[in-house]
């Protein structure tokens, strides 16, 4: 892609900084998630996910990511964590569900890791 040459970026394991590269590929997905601030938009999405995604012109990769419910896939498709959090809410996932899913552990194990970080 074009912007890789822009500057030599720091690589942080397990971490994608949402910059122009991600913003560029993620716009449609993020715009859809931004709409979910409104309860009626959340309901419209829940009534017909596919139609709603098409209306917001999601790319195929973004649609697949949403269908999969996999947050890492949504991030790879350019989703921003603040906006995706609104979508996760619709799916009934809280932040520990999401954390567990992304790190491949149980919710209990993820919560225990958080508690341990404070010890």
């Amino acid at each position: 892609m074009t912007t890789a040459t822009r500057k030599c970026r720091r690589s942080i394991p397990g971490t994608a900084i949402f910059d122009g590269d991600l913003a560029r590929i993620g716009y449609a997905l993020n715009r859809m998630c931004f709409s979910f601030n409104a309860a009626e938009c959340r309901e419209a999405f829940q009534r017909d996910e596919e139609a709603y995604m098409t209306r917001y012109r999601l790319t195929d990769a973004q649609k697949d990511a949403v269908r999969s419910r996999q947050v890492l896939q949504m991030i790879a498709a350019g989703g921003h964590p603040y906006y995706l959090a609104k979508l996760a809410g619709i799916f009934g996932l809280d932040m520990q569900d999401i954390g567990a899913q992304q790190t491949g552990v149980t919710k209990e194990a993820f919560q225990a890791k958080l508690v341990a970080a404070g010890a």
Binding site: T2, T3, R6, K7, D19, G20, D21, R24
Partner: peptide, 10 residues
Amino acid sequence: CVDLSWQIVE
């Protein structure tokens, strides 16, 4: 020209 846009933003 999106590529130049981000170059400018940065």
